[in-house]
Design a protein around this nucleic acid. Structure first.
Lengths: 139, 139
DNA sequence: GATTAACATGATAAAGTATATCATTTCATT
DNA sequence: AATGAAATGATATACTTTATCATGTTAATC
């Protein structure tokens, strides 16, 4: 993701937008809340307002640049929409998130939708639990 | 669900708890937000406080009497935990919720967890879309 | 059935997440 | 460089949910 993508979305290329996109592109953790992003940028000495972070993320979502997920815990998290569709495993101890994709589940969802006369626009599959043998580093 | 279940959860049998449980048991819509419940009870002429509704629902959830789901839209919804585990299709137009269960998806989730050395504690699968040929009655 | 201690309620305050407002600033085009 | 349109950010506001605490209710004991 780069400035070109911001322009393609019909948005001006501004400092806050570039900084947020860079952070999402380069951060080790792919899933960041608006407040995560705000604090990380402040920590890097960047000047940015929390309202701008929320506003820009919503615009990016509308433009298809990022996806918003509602994991448990109140705050929505965002990730770049560069990768193919995938679902998530969320560790309830460390907060670690692993992405996965399974063709069987995807097809089965479509089959079930057909059976119920339902047209799927979006879906959310999240497995909550813990990675076996992993210690509680962050929580 | 009945008063016996409240007692079994280690909670006193109080008017608010009975009313909430009755409403969840008898309502046509199985998935109600705390505010839904609050307003429905007020509409029935019952006296209850919103704080009590939230408190009781959280207690019921801890006791395993209800499940809490985070559909899109900000407010959590609650349903009785009497039924077997199931997932949800949510109509983005009418808000209608249909429950489904699919053994293939369940097994596949377990298989994927095994592959990732992950122990599933809980999971959330929600399909968002619309029921074909259904009109927009409530939205 | 009355007493009483523990528990529960509900009005309100407060916390937390997210959006709306609007004067000021930045962008990008002329 | 000038200028109009768009964006920012401080702050106010909305909204969902939890915390506080004086008052009321429950249920166990006498």
């Amino acid at each position: 993701m780069e400035e070109r993508d911001i322009k393609r979305a019909g948005l001006k290329i501004t400092q806050p937008r570039v900084k947020i996109l860079d952070l999402l592109s380069n951060s080790q953790e792919h899933h960041l809340s608006a407040e995560d992003i705000y604090k990380l940028l402040l920590g890097n000495g960047e000047e940015i307002g929390l309202a701008t972070v929320y506003r820009v993320l919503t615009q990016f979502e509308a433009a298809g640049l990022v996806n918003r997920h509602h994991f448990e815990g109140g705050q929505a998290v965002f990730e770049l929409a560069t990768e193919e569709h995938h679902d998530h495993m969320v560790c309830m101890k460390t907060g670690r998130v692993v992405e996965f994709y399974d063709e069987i589940i995807e097809q089965r969802q479509q089959e079930l939708a057909r059976l119920h006369n339902f047209r799927i626009k979006d879906h959310s599959l999240i497995l909550y639990g813990e990675f076996i043998g992993e210690s509680d580093e962050n929580a």
